[in-house]
Design a protein around this nucleic acid. Structure first.
Length: 921
RNA sequence: GGGCCGGUAGCUCAGCCUGGAAGAGCGCUCGGUUGGCAUCCGAGAGGUCCCGGGUUCAAAUCCCGGCCGGUCCA
């Protein structure tokens, strides 16, 4: 595991200068550095919290003051302040949420594709981590799902050194001792190892008075297949807990008091929960640092020991603390949900949308236990919006969206709760008394019913109910890690890929002039069916835009271009016939199929306009979730929480066409990545984040701006018109729009016309006139049919009556032949007949030229003596056929014409058997 | 992206395990009863058992594929 001499890394110059020594913690056996001898490493769980007793010179700081101080300290020491990124990590494929400040720079900076925005830099990054969702509250604030990570980062390139371990530790110590004013004797730096996001390195965990306040990571390795490969880039990756710093300076009994201030009191009031006395919180505070929630008993023990200390009855302690934990949860979760929603996450059943729903459901569960209304839920969100608006300005613009979504999600949650009794009942009737452990687990995993709720439902239904102790263990044991990535089928064969990769980048004429239809180029390589040119106007598939078609002409030879793809920066053209005659170095002419390309451009520009319009109408939570631009139509999937109404669709069409009529210019420009982000924000990255130092921004003036590498029109007027042809919700939280533009509108309309005309040909007249008449006619026919059926029923019943032969008391046999091949009718008549006549045994043969069917039906009494299946068996032996059934009803099918059946033989076989069974006693 | 659960009358669901006659309650229509409280009694209408394929003499039921909804997880 250990790849370098760790001690060398950790032995920074300051330790010697200022008299720090390396010591071994007697409790956790880790090495730590401090100026004075200590009983342990100074970090929980080896010690209790005691930072409330440590003298801190700094005045009490709110989180936002702590954030300012942190940024200023590092700014004053040569760090440039960088704006935080969103909490939703849209630029990353491997994580949904921003879990640390370094996540902002992965992978583009850490993989040395893009230089950092500044070096060194400092950032106060809001982060969300949901791993501890279940622990929040109990530890009085050691676990939070949202926090601000203050990070100062230095990126040391092989040819440019900034600073590393020595300076990092000096900065941290100076910050905490001089700036925050903690006594240096109370500082402890524990040696540790950090790993995450594919990188690893040694680190120091810095604590004051038992509270870990910062982690200083020296990122040095890439982790691949469990091996550590030294990175050319050495990164200082620090994480200062801004909330922890606020807590340290305020010394409140819980971090929630330090972070949320007077919101704590307000939440207690709104939720009708009594605040615990400070003495109780202080008693818990001491012990909470050691609390390990993996053992569910620990919180109970903690409550008991706190109660003993204060001489408070344990019921009272429980009441206070259980209530407070709920309030703390609500504070934390509401803020986390708020941050996610205001970043535009749409709750759904997968992806980051699920994480938002997870948080919302967790807080709803608590709130519904406290019996609050939707209005109260919204009030809780509003209180936090007000409190955090200055720190997160986007909270203001997302207020409407948050309201709509929270209300909708709360409604859905209540529907789920409402379904609970009927679902639980279904499981109860499945057999076995009560519910098994597996059934509890299934109720949770398949139906979202937490065990506590199930138990509640059970006891309301009068069943003994207790959540199985092993429930959470059983749940955890089912969690299997699934691979996150799926292997995509390569469009280009691998062997071509390798051959093409090393070639120089292809000059992209389609970017320089999207209207270029013909060009001259030189052949750079021929690989299999693929031709590589030094320059091309053929657009390779990408960004949802389909590849171009056209021709490559070499002398008098013409090759059809059937596919265009890109391999890195190289564009390859698949041609037919195979390019056996084409030689490297040869000059060729390219001709782009303009009809196809121009349609792609119209649909592509229309897509940008549509997205801009949708964001304007619905809000910034509308994000592109997928798109495709073909010749015949365009398709755009976006995130939104409900299917659009008919009126909304009309409005959308009108707005898009308005933008088209305004003939807005469409411009593209190359902008350095960080500058583009500053100017346009993250909405740029609708189609994903390009790993480039410079991004190509396509802007439809006043409507939309996106990083995009497709080909676009000069002007929205060229789109020529826009019509939605299909809109549907394709999954929870995603709506699909399909549309046509330009001449495709005519194609679409004439296709519709053709369909209508064919339909009119079929019905023989105008649809709107003819259809009502046809429907009425069908209705009349149906009525006539049922009258005929009614009539034939009585005919059949008469003939059954007529052929009746009483064998004994409670046994009367009828055997008849029905000429009408209406099996359903026969069955119904038989059923009605035998239901009223318990003694009846009725045999009806029906069918057509190819197949016949003998149906046997019996009344209750008759079936007690004669088994219909037995009769059918005997018949089958006598006349063939196969079949079976139940005691009171059976069927025999013969692959013979009804005409060939000998009714008298059937009658003989049946009567023989019935006589045998019925006259026996 | 994956696992699990579900899709049957307008609604809520039973039937599916173990293949053999499509059901209940509510709602609706009609008739009677009733001052009202989910009044009571009787009659009736209402079905692509999600779709497609397979197995079988026979599929709501078993098997395969798909669609839709729910839910948990990544």
């Amino acid at each position: 595991m250990c790849v370098v001499s760790r001690e060398d890394i950790f032995r920074v110059r300051m330790f010697k200068d200022r008299g720090y020594s390396r010591r071994l913690c007697g409790s956790c056996k880790a090495y730590y550095w401090s100026r004075v001898e200590r009983p342990n490493c100074g970090d929980t769980p080896c010690t209790d919290y005691y930072f409330d007793e440590v003298p801190i010179r700094s005045p009490p700081l709110s989180p936002s003051e702590a954030r300012e101080r942190f940024l200023k300290f590092f700014q004053d020491r040569g760090h440039e302040v960088v704006d935080p990124y969103p909490v939703v990590a849209r630029w990353r494929e491997d994580i949904y949420l921003t879990i640390a400040s370094i996540a902002v720079f992965q992978p583009h900076v850490t993989k040395m594709i893009v230089p950092p925005p500044a070096n060194p830099l400092v950032i106060a990054q809001p982060c969300i981590r949901l791993e501890d969702l279940g622990s929040v509250g109990y530890t009085l604030g050691r676990h939070l799902t949202n926090f601000i990570m203050g990070g100062h980062h230095a990126f040391n390139y092989p040819d440019k050194y900034v600073y590393f371990t020595d300076e990092t530790v000096e900065l941290a110590v100076e910050f905490f001792t001089k700036y925050i004013g903690a006594p240096e004797e109370e500082l402890s730096l524990k040696e540790s190892w950090w790993e995450g996001g594919g990188n690893a390195g040694p680190c120091f965990e810095v604590s004051v008075g038992g509270l870990e306040v910062a982690t200083l990571v020296f990122m040095m390795y890439d982790v691949a297949d469990g091996r550590y490969i030294e990175m050319p880039l050495k990164i200082v990756d620090t994480g200062y807990g801004i909330e922890r710093i606020a807590w340290l300076t305020q010394k409140t009994p819980t971090a929630f008091h330090a972070v949320y201030g007077d919101l704590v009191g307000k939440y207690h009031k709104v939720l009708g929960v009594k605040e615990p006395p400070e003495s109780l919180l202080r008693a818990v505070f001491k012990r909470s640092g050691r609390l390990d929630l993996r053992d569910p008993e620990q919180f109970r023990l903690l409550k008991r020991s706190a109660g003993l200390e204060l001489d408070m009855p344990k019921e009272e302690v429980s009441k206070y603390l259980d209530g407070a934990v709920m309030v703390y949860n609500a504070l934390d979760h509401v803020k986390t949900a708020l941050l996610m929603l205001s970043d535009g996450v749409v709750p759904s059943n997968s992806g980051e949308g699920y994480l938002a729903r997870l948080v919302l459901r967790k807080v709803f569960r608590i709130l519904s236990r406290l019996g609050v209304s939707v209005d109260t839920v919204l009030e809780l969100f509003d209180l936090q919006t007000k409190a955090w608006r200055s720190l997160y300005p986007r909270l203001s613009s997302s207020e409407d969206y948050v309201h709509q979504v929270v209300e909708l999600e709360y409604k859905r949650f209540q529907e789920l709760i409402g379904r609970a009794p009927s679902i639980v009942k279904r499981y109860l009737s499945k057999g076995g008394p009560g519910l098994s452990l597996d059934e509890y687990v299934e109720l949770y995993e398949s139906h979202g019913l937490p065990p506590e709720l199930v138990a509640e439902v059970l006891s309301k239904l009068g069943y003994p109910a207790q959540v199985p102790r092993e429930f959470y263990a059983a749940l955890a044991s089912r969690r299997v890690r699934a691979p996150i990535k799926k292997a995509e089928a390569p469009v280009v064969p691998r062997e071509f890929y390798e051959k093409v990769e090393g070639l120089p980048p292809t000059r992209r004429l389609f970017h320089e002039d999207p209207y270029m239809r013909e060009f001259e180029a030189r052949v750079v390589a021929v690989v299999g069916d693929y031709v590589v040119l030094d320059r091309t106007a053929f657009y390779p598939e990408g960004g949802g835009q389909k590849p171009d078609r056209g021709r490559i002409v070499s002398g008098d030879r013409v090759y059809e271009v059937v596919d265009v793809q890109k391999v890195g920066d190289v564009v390859i053209h698949k041609v037919r016939p195979p390019p056996y005659e084409i030689r490297v170095g040869q000059e060729v002419r390219g001709e782009v199929d303009w009809d196809v390309r121009y349609s792609h451009m119209r649909h592509h520009t229309a897509t940008h306009v549509l997205l801009g319009v949708l964001r304007k109408i619905y809000g910034d939570h509308v994000w592109q979730a997928g798109a495709e631009k073909e010749r015949v139509k365009g398709r755009l999937d976006v995130t939104h929480f409900k299917a659009p109404t008919a009126e909304e669709l009309k409005l959308i069409e009108r707005e898009v066409n308005r933008v088209i009529n305004e003939a807005r210019p469409v411009v593209f420009k190359e902008v350095p990545k960080y500058e583009a982000e500053k100017v346009y924000g993250f909405r740029l990255y609708q189609g994903g984040v390009p790993l480039e130092p410079v991004v190509r921004v396509v802007e439809v003036e006043g409507v939309d701006a996106e990083a995009c590498y497709g080909t676009h029109l000069r002007n929205t007027a060229e789109v020529g018109g826009f019509k939605l042809i299909n809109v549907e919700k394709i999954q929870d939280g995603v709506v699909r729009f399909e549309y046509v533009a330009g001449p495709q509108l005519v194609e679409y309309a004439s296709k519709l016309e053709d369909e209508i005309r064919s339909a009119e040909k079929l019905v023989g007249g105008r649809l709107l006139e003819k259809l009502p008449r046809l429907l009425k006619e069908a209705e009349e026919l149906k009525r006539a049919l049922s009258q005929y059926r009614e009539f034939y029923k009585s005919v059949l019943v008469n003939s059954i009556e007529g052929s009746k032969e009483v064998v004994s008391e409670g046994c009367a046999v009828s055997v008849v032949l029905s000429e009408l091949p209406d099996e359903e009718l026969v069955t119904r008549v038989l059923r009605d007949y035998t239901r009223e006549r318990p003694e009846a045994i009725v045999v009806v043969a029906s069918g057509d030229e190819r197949r016949s069917r003998i149906e046997v039906s019996e009344g209750v009494e008759a079936s007690a003596r004669v088994d219909a299946v037995d009769l059918v068996d005997r018949l089958s032996r006598a006349i063939g056929g196969r079949g079976g059934g139940k005691r009171e009803h059976a069927i025999l099918v013969l692959e013979r014409s009804l005409r060939d059946l000998d009714v008298s033989e059937i009658r003989r076989v049946v009567l023989d058997r019935v006589r045998e069974l019925c006259s026996r006693r």
